[in-house]
Design a protein around this nucleic acid. Structure first.
Lengths: 136, 136
DNA sequence: ATCCGTGCAAATTATTTGCATATGG
DNA sequence: CCATATGCAAATAATTTGCACGGAT
């Protein structure tokens, strides 16, 4: 949470109750929710919060490098408070998105830079399939 | 093209002019277009084609494994007639999407299956950054 | 002839924007 | 105070759907 507050202050952004609540919601879950899901989770506690604020806050967090946006094969972005470049496994049956936390993947971004001459700023690795629960 | 026709027939789908034109358009480009772009490219030659048909055809092709859909950080899907699991580099400035064709990447899907017990059916690796042209 | 695919328009879904009000520094 | 954030509603963008007609087998 201090991470959020410091980053907001450092960038002349105001520390608001809404921003804290949105970031906290994301930090507290491993579910990689989308804006709508975050909004619904917040609604009971913050009845006046608006979906537009959730979108605007998430966009701000991404621009500040506080969260990462991930594109699963759905038409909505999912968010992850873990900003390190780690792979995700996505169950196409139950729509669950899980992290691969192992320090398993080398920094392929450097290799890609060497091969393509691109300046790589971010990477996303997604594996789609069926989770053990849905396989039975 | 025979690949398309065979696959359609094998699955009791009709071989139509529109499907051929859409698939051909995708086969003939390296630009990873979205549905709208394919539609625009087709419009001069096929003035009656509809965007809905492009969407429906692409969806069919994906389900038949003839093309792959890729999620870049935009709110539209891009399509690739190369169905092998290869990484993409995406220039966030000019929005270009390029293939990494090198037989460089091991089949990480197998490793992920071993680690997570998921049955992995598809993978997507995307590297976002700035291309050499936009870097200057 | 029959059924599937097409094209059109309308519906849906996700996201963004404009603006008046509220609030943090 | 003053600028920025919020909340609402309206706007936009991408995609999907329903349905009548036309074309492929």
């Amino acid at each position: 949470m201090n991470e959020l507050i410091e980053k907001l202050k450092k960038n002349d952004c105001k520390v608001t109750l809404q921003r804290i609540a949105i970031y906290e919601t994301l930090k507290d879950t491993k579910e990689h929710p989308n804006a709508e899901a975050i909004y619904k989770r917040l609604a009971p506690k913050y009845p006046t919060i608006s979906l537009a604020t959730v979108y605007k806050s998430l966009e701000l967090f991404v621009s500040l490098g506080l969260v990462q946006a991930i594109n699963v094969e759905e038409n909505s972005f999912r968010y992850d408070a873990n900003t390190s470049p780690h792979p995700h496994v996505i169950c196409t049956t139950c729509k669950k998105v899980e992290d691969i936390d192992e320090p398993y993947f080398p920094d392929l971004g450097r290799d890609i830079e060497a091969m393509t001459k691109y300046k790589v700023k971010k990477q996303q690795m997604s594996f789609y399939g069926t989770c053990p629960d849905c396989l039975n």
